[in-house]
């Protein structure tokens, strides 16, 4: 979109100014060639103003990349395992969900964009209550995230895009520290969709984010009052106010499994679907077990070494 007349048209003026300033500080982290490759991978369906039908703006993502890159490389020192050549067709990534704030989504998307061959823009499916939040909804939409509605997912997959699904939903993201790495129940919608659109599923395990925001207690009444899915109480939140919700700089590992194809009839009996869902769930659980084993005993597991 460089040099386009409408290149900088659009996105919210408030967010824009703020982000371009922050982006400036991290400009050195940027790699223009890589950025262009990533952004052009999703640029086929942009309109005259540089937006895709779901409101994603590569010009906006360009401003966010330095921040995500900083989080990915320096803050969480992310290591990926098993991320080989990716098919360029439709793909559905299915991951465990944790960490109170959707950090895992951002890190998986960064992993696929930074280390995927070829790099791809991953569209994650967000919770239903997110679109009603000011700024957050806007930020997410411009970064290419989409409301997790079956119709939206189907539309993206039919355009051969790659989507990221958390079948645990809020059950996963808002679970407590003592339940860490215990997979919650999976929804079944993703499986019907994958079968209907003949999309291979890539199982993912994210290790480390569980410790980044360790919730000791969920203040359910306050959450209901605020209209949020949960109100986590961590050692630092709400003690140190908003700053306390800042995730701890834990070493993060992302494990990718082999793509799993699922054939058959999407309208099949529930127990057929459930069996397929369990296959994916077992794969994710196996990846979690392996990841936990390989990262070693406690202090080293979360501290991590210098990135190899």
């Amino acid at each position: 979109m460089e040099g386009n007349l409408y290149d900088d048209a659009g996105y919210s003026p408030q967010l824009d100014e703020y982000l371009s300033e922050i982006g400036h500080w991290f400009r050195d982290w940027g790699d223009k060639d890589w950025e262009n490759r990533v952004l052009s991978s999703g640029a086929a369906r942009l309109n005259e103003f540089g937006y895709d039908p779901f409101g994603m703006s590569p010009a906006f993502i360009r401003k966010v990349i330095p921040i995500v890159r900083f989080l990915y490389r320096a803050y969480f020192r992310v290591s990926t395992h098993g991320l080989h050549e990716l098919p360029t067709t439709r793909l559905m990534f299915v991951s465990n969900h944790s960490g109170q704030i959707p950090l895992d989504g951002a890190l998986i998307a960064a992993a696929v964009a930074v280390e995927g061959r070829p790099p791809r823009i991953l569209r994650s499916m967000v919770e239903r209550w997110v679109p009603s939040l000011p700024f957050v909804s806007l930020f997410m939409a411009r970064c290419g995230q989409v409301l997790g509605d079956p119709e939206n997912s189907r539309r993206l997959l039919e355009n051969d895009e790659a989507i990221l699904v958390f079948p645990e939903g809020t059950r996963g993201i808002s679970k407590l520290y003592r339940d860490r790495y215990k997979l919650q129940e999976f929804g079944t919608g993703f499986m019907r969709l994958a079968m209907e659109t003949k999309t291979p599923i890539v199982p993912i395990a994210v290790i480390g984010v569980e410790e980044a925001v360790p919730a000791l207690f969920n203040f359910k009444r306050l959450a209901r009052f605020l209209g949020t899915p949960s109100f986590p109480v961590t050692p630092t939140f709400p003690l140190f106010l908003g700053l306390g919700l800042l995730p701890y700089p834990v070493k993060v590992h992302i494990w990718f499994g082999e793509p799993m194809p699922f054939g058959g009839d999407a309208d099949d009996e529930d127990d057929v679907i459930d069996r397929n869902v369990d296959k994916v769930r077992d794969r994710v659980a196996a990846l979690i077990a392996r990841g936990l084993k390989e990262r070693g005993p406690f202090p080293f597991s979360v501290l991590g070494g210098i990135r190899p």
Partner: peptide, 9 residues
């Protein structure tokens, strides 16, 4: 009609 665009655009 033509593709959608943000209000601000």
């Amino acid at each position: 009609g033509p593709p959608a665009a943000p209000l601000s655009a």
